[in-house]
Design a protein around this nucleic acid. Structure first.
Lengths: 154, 154
DNA sequence: TTCTATGCAAAATCTTTGCAATTAG
DNA sequence: CTAATTGCAAAGATTTTGCATAGAA
């Protein structure tokens, strides 16, 4: 429900910025609107391909993501996985960060009010006019956890 | 002082893992030990070249960084700048995170006990066996700040 | 000697750009 | 018609790998 609302809003923002409607962008927006967490350009390409839709060229995907980021419709998410992920900009109620499994690459969202408070307090103290923040907790997800036994105990 | 201690420790760890001593790795370790914050592979390459030392090949730098990360001597730092940065693993007293200027790319360290407490508390609650975390505050540094006037006030 | 470390160059990955053809307004 | 949009292919940037040589134990 929120997803399609976001897509509509995004379409409106794009139109308002003086752009025309295009099939590739539409497909990308639809896909992004349906995501629950951050995705990369290549994941988008794969997803669109699997949906059997008309092909959307990789270059277009990158251009569109860049454009949507500049329009503040998307935000970049660095998960430490050698490629950029994007997700739609959320309002403060949906603000969240990410858990990343180092083994399987799974990315999950999480949020915590206490953490945000600490960040806000801190933002006023650092020698930087803070415009945003990003937090990633890394570790082993439930499926990957059993793999204990790090060869450390010598 | 702490820097060279780290280099010694790292050399010992490398040796303990059954590796031989090599000039390239030694040069990279020395360089890393002297850094106050995270650096990228290409920055290391440049720095070594400028030091007039014998050339260290780019491939070796990547291999060495990867090896040192697996040995937990280095940790990856994602600053959202399209390349990976590394810095030496520090003890808890030196644990810190990063401020990144979106304009000039400056990276600065910062730390905050309250933030760490929030992270620790949280780590116990998420569906992930947390092994580490990363926090980046983005914004404009002092030199880049004057560029106010965001076109928001409509 | 034997196995590791390194350099060089080619390959792989992710991303960006140039250009011509297509399409929306 | 005019300008934005898209696809394709080539170019860029960063990182990885294959292989032969040099070096440590």
């Amino acid at each position: 429900v929120t997803a399609s609302a976001w897509v509509d809003w995004a379409q409106a923002q794009v139109a308002a910025s003086g752009r025309k409607r295009g099939g590739a962008r539409h497909a990308v927006l639809e896909l992004l609107g349906a995501q629950t967490c951050a995705v990369s350009a290549l994941e988008i390409e794969d997803a669109l391909r699997q949906r059997g839709r008309r092909e959307v060229s990789r270059a277009s995907i990158y251009r569109i993501l860049d454009e949507l980021e500049r329009l503040r419709l998307l935000q970049r998410v660095q998960t430490g996985q050698a490629m950029v992920r994007y997700e739609r900009v959320r309002d403060s109620r949906d603000h969240h960060h990410h858990l990343v499994c180092d083994r399987c690459g799974l990315v999950m969202p999480f949020s915590d009010a206490g953490l945000e408070r600490a960040i806000d307090r801190l933002s006023a103290e650092v020698p930087l006019t803070v415009s945003g923040h990003e937090i990633v907790l890394r570790g082993a997800c439930r499926d990957c956890r059993p793999a204990a036994g790090a060869p450390t105990g010598s």
